[in-house]
Structures are given as C-alpha cells and as structure tokens.
C-alpha cells in the first residue's frame, strides 16, 4: 500500500504491507532505530513515538494508519545541534542505564510536559506508567522530567519545521 507520512519534519512516500507495524516501518524502512521493541503485548512502551503530537506505542499502530499524519521520534528532538531539554536532563540526572527504554520514555515525557510543564512527582509517575524501565527504578527519570519541564518553561522554545520531500528508505 502506498503511504505518505511526515517523520521528524521530512515527508516520506513508501509502499508497505498493511500488516507492517509502525515501529517496524520506522526501524526497517526509514532506519530510525531509536524506537525499540521490548514486548509483544503493548506493555513496555519502548516503541513510543508521537503521532500528531500524542504519545502512542508504535508497535500497536499500523504503519498505514500513519498515512497523512505527522510523527516525531527521538531522532527528531535535537534542533540545530542542540539537545532537547529532556535529552539533556536524562543525561544530567542519570535517568538511563542500558538506554533501551530511553527513547520511548523521552517521547512520552515530551507529551506530558506539553500538557503539564510543572508536573509533581505523582503526576510524572502517572504520566510515564506505560513505559517500562528495568534498570533505573524510575527515581532519576522522575527527576529528569521535572528538571526538563523547568528548563523548557524557561526557554519556551518554538520548534521550527522545515519540511522536505524525500523518498523512503525502501
């Protein structure tokens, strides 16, 4: 099936099998391997990306369902060589160990801070409960998200979208 999707500000046109899950489309067609697969049951959230600004588990969306939509992945967070405040905060607060959950966790946090720039610990914990981390025990992830929220409020950055059409990887 033909589809056209905007990922990280770039438009891709692809021909995919309808059963292709969005996560495999991103990983194998576009070679954006930040979203990971950690379970088969929509539990772990390692594959989380933003679909039209909303966090979704990309293992539980068909690629063809993203036709005509906009996707943001962890690879699209850095702007002009500058890390996103969440990326910085995860680094500074030691909010990752093996790194496998990190891209999904950051994307869920991205939407959370959009809705609520100053979440309490309880609100962060509620917000990220769909993203499993097996390494950190979550304490530093909570800290990082709160810290990023404060930084973002200070910066109040407006992302600049520069769209261009490119053919897809496959």
């Amino acid at each position: 099936m033909q589809m056209r999707v905007t990922v990280n500000g770039r438009v891709y046109e692809s021909d995919v099998e309808p059963r292709t899950l969005l996560v495999y489309y991103l990983r194998e067609h576009l070679r954006l391997t930040g979203a990971h697969v950690g379970c088969d049951t929509t539990t772990c959230g390692a594959c989380t990306v933003l679909l039209n600004g909303k966090a979704v588990k990309s293992c539980t969306v068909l690629a063809v369902q993203a036709n005509g939509q906009e996707i943001l992945t962890v690879e699209g967070l850095e702007r002009d060589g500058e890390l996103h405040p969440l990326q910085k905060a995860f680094w500074e607060e030691h909010a990752l160990q093996c790194g496998y959950c990190t891209p999904g966790m950051i994307m869920t946090a991205c939407e959370l801070l959009e809705r609520n720039p100053f979440p309490t610990e309880e609100e962060v914990r509620k917000g990220i409960s769909g993203n499993v981390c097996r390494c950190t025990g979550y304490v530093n992830i909570v800290k990082a998200i709160q810290s990023a929220g404060r930084q973002m409020a200070e910066q109040n950055k407006v992302p600049n979208d520069q769209s261009e059409v490119v053919p897809s990887g496959n």
Binding site: L32, E75, G99, T102, P103, I106
Partner: peptide
C-alpha cells in the same frame, strides 16, 4: 542513547 543512536 538519548539520541536514539544506541546500537542494539
């Protein structure tokens, strides 16, 4: 890792 560039 924070850039999604880990190589698993």
């Amino acid at each position: 890792f924070i850039r999604g560039q880990g190589r698993y």
